[in-house]
């Protein structure tokens, strides 16, 4: 069970983590600035196991992998959006952070709602109701299953 942090449409990578922090030596130094421009409390409030729920085109903009990395480092369990920009989507899978497409969830949950996600069955439980989400393509599920793309290099 985790809490929902809700974000609007077209959340770009600069909002997830701004340029001025990208050259910091480590993700841990960057993560406290996650979503700084949209919700300066986010980084201190989010707990491991919480969810980011967003409207269309989440993660558009730059290829900075720091964007999914800071979310993962803060313990975000998954991002569920109506749709994702492609580089963000790919980067998330590559680092082993689930990104789930659900066309309906955004419209039915509020900030702070409790929700549960069962990745294997593709089911979301929120406010006592069950929602289904789009399953990942096989190639991506395979990367996620093995713990990200780097894990495949270490086999």
């Amino acid at each position: 069970m985790g809490k929902v942090f809700k974000f609007h449409k077209d959340v770009d990578t600069d909002q997830i983590i701004a340029s001025q922090y990208l050259l910091f030596p480590t993700i841990d130094e960057m993560k406290v600035h996650t979503f700084e421009s949209l919700n300066s409390e986010f980084a201190s409030q989010v707990k491991p196991g919480d969810f980011v729920v967003a409207d269309e085109n989440f993660g558009c903009g730059s290829s900075r992998e720091q964007a999914p990395s800071v979310l993962k480092a803060l313990g975000v369990k998954a991002v569920i959006a109506k749709s994702f920009a492609r580089i963000f989507y790919r980067n998330s899978i590559n680092i082993g952070m689930p990104v789930i497409v659900s066309k309906e969830l955004y419209d039915v949950v509020k900030d702070g709602d409790d929700m549960e996600l069962d990745l294997l069955s593709g089911k979301i439980l929120a406010n006592g109701k069950e929602y289904s989400c789009t399953k990942l393509p096989a190639k991506m599920q395979e990367i996620l299953d093995q713990g990200g793309l780097i894990a495949s290099l270490n086999k």
Binding site: G61, E65, I87, R90, N91, N94, I95, L149, I150, L153
Partner: peptide, 27 residues
């Protein structure tokens, strides 16, 4: 592959340029 989203610029010379994250880049 460019670890930068604007790598798609290379199409101006008929090359398939695409932006990737650092994990993809590393792979």
């Amino acid at each position: 592959f460019g670890a930068d989203s604007h790598t798609c610029a290379y199409g101006a010379l008929g090359a398939f340029g695409t932006g990737v994250g650092c994990t993809d880049y590393l792979y």
